[in-house]
Design a binder for these strands. Structure first.
Length: 272
DNA sequence: CGTCCCACCTGATTGC
DNA sequence: TGCAATCAGGTGGGAC
């Protein structure tokens, strides 16, 4: 479900609500697929800890906690990956937990942080040290570093943008939207793009992500932030989800194809 | 190692 | 209306 702008919106919203709160106990559904760290270990590590910070790294929500019990215990990173349908919501116990709730952190003030995930593609785990993610941050990466990511690569630029060990945080929507804004066809081999095209792509990506964060992300079906609010960037989508409809720039029908197994949208006129 | 493709799940929508 | 097929914002592992 969520890509960088959606994950950032959720992380910021949860941070505002729970920073400084103390986790008193943890409940888990025990569904094995959801837990990269065994549920019992998660419950033990997070119970009686204080939430120092909630932030985004790539598409992962990082909840940094300090264990209370063991005096000078080092802070710990609790990682929440939302997969396609995951949600992280702050609620009060009088609101019944929705179906597919897989983890609940009970806070000392009575509120709960709930992880809900119908398709169970999401993952919960503890990081060994400070989590830095698998790749580079698309919002802050420099020009030379960006260009170097794609050198010599034969895969389609669209597929390369989705490769999290290169750039983390970019998903299907923002790959398509940034390629449109840069005027680059998604099927082009990544290593064949010119320096000028890659610089355009870097700028397009930064602009698209910044604008999407500003609008609270894209709500394509059921994505909501920590407060249950929808995002509004989908209104500004130029190509994603617009197959067959006229290009907003030139009127040519937007094409929908499959690249790297993912639905891919582009304008055959504007993107070369 | 780089790349491709499919499995992993549930639910909403489309099509017959 | 009813039921089956198709599709979905993501990853990770196996095959080549």
């Amino acid at each position: 479900m969520p890509e960088l702008p959606e994950v950032e919106t959720i992380a910021n919203g949860v941070h505002q609500r729970v920073v400084g709160a103390r986790i008193t106990s943890v409940w888990t559904s025990g569904k094995p697929q959801t837990f990269k760290t065994p549920p019992a270990a998660l419950e033990a590590a997070l119970s009686d800890s204080t939430i120092l910070e909630v932030k985004r790294v790539g598409k992962t929500i990082v909840m940094r906690v300090r264990p209370e019990s063991a005096g000078d215990a080092a802070p710990l990173d609790f990682l929440i990956h939302l997969g396609m349908t995951g949600r992280l919501v702050v609620a009060t116990p009088d609101v019944p937990p929705p179906p597919h709730t897989h983890a609940v952190l009970s806070l000392a003030d009575g509120r709960e942080v709930r992880f809900v995930d119908p398709r169970r593609f999401g993952r919960l785990s503890l990081a060994a040290g400070t989590y830095t993610g698998p790749g580079a941050e698309p919002t802050t990466i420099g020009e030379q570093e960006f260009i170097a990511l794609f050198r010599g690569r034969k895969l389609a630029i669209k597929a390369a943008l989705l490769h999290q060990s290169l750039l983390h945080g970019v998903g299907n929507i923002y790959a398509d939207e940034s390629l449109f804004r840069a005027g680059i066809r998604p099927t082009r081999p990544a290593g064949r793009l010119t320096r000028a095209e890659l610089l355009r792509l870097r700028e397009a990506l930064r602009a698209v992500l910044a604008r999407a964060i500003q609008l609270g992300g894209s709500s394509v079906s059921d994505y909501v932030d920590a407060e249950g609010m929808r995002g509004y960037f989908q209104i500004e989508h130029a190509v994603y989800g617009r197959g067959g409809q006229p290009c907003k720039t030139c009127g040519t029908p937007v094409k929908k194809i499959v690249v790297g197994g993912r639905g891919t949208h582009y304008c055959p006129q504007c993107q070369r």
